[in-house]
Design a protein around this nucleic acid. Structure first.
Lengths: 344, 344
DNA sequence: CGGTACGATGCAAGCGCTTGCACGTTCAGC
DNA sequence: GCTGAACGTGCAAGCGCTTGCATCGTACCG
């Protein structure tokens, strides 16, 4: 009988099964040292008492916490972060490892995080999702004393899983070039809190590279900054009021592209007839809206990162410490050949 | 000096500050029993060693884990769940409480969760976010032995924070009625995994109530099921091929409404000229797309739930155990008066 | 100037597990 | 039948904190 009010402890299970606490522990962990019959008896007793191992006690005794941390910047309700949490959680669950979220909202929280290191002694591994760490921060993280896995950020010597932002953007822009577009604008989202978006600049780089490849002079490579995901109208105006307006716009994220798409519709224009539009990510809504995009398999990337973290947390050596996940250009209904600028 | 390889422990800090471990503990927790000078010395020593209290040891000794669980159904990358995670995390951080995510994907995971109770002895409180629990599941959760807070689900006797789905939908439909619409269709999303969406049926109820109020017979209250968030085209076809097609469509979520909006545009129609469209939620993209909607302040709701959980976890008695958060009808550009069915 | 009270600190007993080691049993091999 | 594996189980020492209680000064009171 468990002590009336509180939870059943391992001692309660042991008593009920008529064995020692040590045996209960071993049985519940599936140790081969325990005979099948005993194990069965223990399992039954545990079930009857609704016993669940206390992770806290287990962690203290074993040194393994059974918990992996996920460090994220920016809002968690965006498509990318949400997908990452989802995918990481899914990989962790079968391994019976829990997921603790660490989120940094702004400069201040960021400083606090790296000073106080709340994850210290508290997770078996930490996944750091796409934000641009400074060298000092990176160094500081090392003192955590747990394995680190970087997600969509590559740092020499640190295990990481990432897409190739440069190549992805390059492929996307090449796609537009292949449709005959030459005047292409690239819209980059500039965050209020710098350093939280690692990918933007690299995507610009891909754009430039594709454009240069096609012989477009650097001064004709139009890059527009969007200071807000809602800046669709603004961006559209900036772009269309040029003397020679672009025939295609590529945005560094779908969320941004969707805003621009809405602005296009609102302006009484049509994509792709009046303007081709390309996003980046393959946001859940992109397909629904027919938005062409450079798809990044975020769930896959995050899943790989989780696997890597699990491997490292267990003290095993991963097969590969650096994984690059491919992107894929998906042309839907917002992109088309440049020519037929007749419709209205 | 901390033991070379491993982390500094409280003993290391104690040694460095020239006090006992007990004093370090008290000092670091801001106990008034410690003199200011000693406290300062301890804090300094801790800082020099980058010491962080081991939650695991602290939890075992004190019985307070410093961790709150969040149980979610369905995909985490959707707007609602993302917003909830965000908001809960933000309330927990100042209280120095961590957030652990429990997510249930399908029937199987659901059964495992309620059988094995992984949250047992592992969190100080559990927030259960909008999914329809069966009575048995609810009962089972009680055996967790920790305070429960329900988010967007109301169960007698359990602390909860929720919007009034019925009233929200009713207000929304009233808005459409006020614009002159009489033939209104309500689109309900039916999940593949039943029981994960608590709100859908109650929103239908609100729709019926408003329609009845306006004198529309029950058989003329058109409710359409969408089996997928991508079912926009399908839904639109179903609706428009009726002998007397509705002039307005209300969906039980913005994500669904956005899909329908896309289908409308794709069909060469226009909202609101050809069809008024109303969503529910006020998804981040709704504003960007000009979608009219019944806004639910999910961040606020989740924040309140987190506060409630913190209060209960600390053993304090909350001022209110049941909180209802108001919704608000926001009419943007996809809704309009019924009359001018002339445009093309 | 002794007694008392109080503020500051240390002692030590856990919290509920894990795990190295010791201790039977049982059984095969010789 | 005796020895030694091999197997299954229990003992007990922690893991690194928290916290009730004892202790020690010091200040204050009469």
């Amino acid at each position: 009988m468990p002590t009336s009010d509180s939870h059943a402890s391992m001692a309660d299970v042991a008593r009920r099964a008529g064995v020692s606490v040590a045996t209960v522990s071993r049985a519940l962990h599936g140790s081969p040292l325990v005979s099948v019959e005993t194990a069965a008896r223990v399992t039954a007793a545990a079930e009857e008492l609704s016993f669940a191992i206390s992770r806290v006690a287990s962690g203290l005794a074993s040194g393994r916490l059974g918990r992996i941390g996920l460090l994220l910047g920016g809002p968690l309700h965006g498509w990318f972060n949400g997908t990452v949490i989802d995918a990481v959680h899914d990989r962790l669950t079968p391994a019976d490892v829990e997921l603790t979220i660490f989120r940094i909202r702004d400069r201040a929280e960021r400083d606090v995080f790296f000073t106080r290191l709340p994850a210290r002694r508290n997770v078996d591994a930490l996944i750091v999702a796409s934000f641009a760490l400074t060298g000092a921060e990176h160094t500081r993280l090392q003192t955590l004393g747990v394995p680190l896995v970087y997600l969509n950020q590559r740092v020499r010597g640190v295990p990481s899983v990432a897409i190739d932002d440069v190549a992805g953007a390059r492929d996307g822009v090449r796609g537009l070039l292949g449709l005959g577009h030459r005047r292409i604008a690239f819209v980059r989202s500039v965050q209020r809190n710098p350093g939280f978006r690692y990918s933007a600049d690299r995507r610009v780089e891909g754009f430039r590279s594709a454009m240069a490849e096609a012989g477009v002079a650097e001064r004709d490579q139009l890059v527009v900054d969007a200071h807000d995901l809602d800046a669709g109208d603004e961006v559209l105006a900036t772009v269309l009021t040029r003397s020679e307006p672009p025939t295609a716009v590529a945005a560094d994220s779908d969320e941004l592209a969707i805003g621009i798409l809405a602005a296009v519709v609102r302006a009484g224009l049509r994509a792709p007839d009046d303007l081709s539009l390309l996003g980046f990510d393959d946001h859940a809504l992109a397909g629904r809206l027919g938005l062409s995009t450079v798809a990044q398999p975020a769930a896959l990337t995050a899943g790989e990162a989780a696997d890597l973290a699990l491997t490292l947390a267990a003290g095993r050596v991963p097969a590969r410490r650096t994984i690059v996940v491919p992107t894929r250009l998906i042309l839907r209904r917002t992109t088309g050949p440049v020519a037929p600028r007749a419709a209205a």
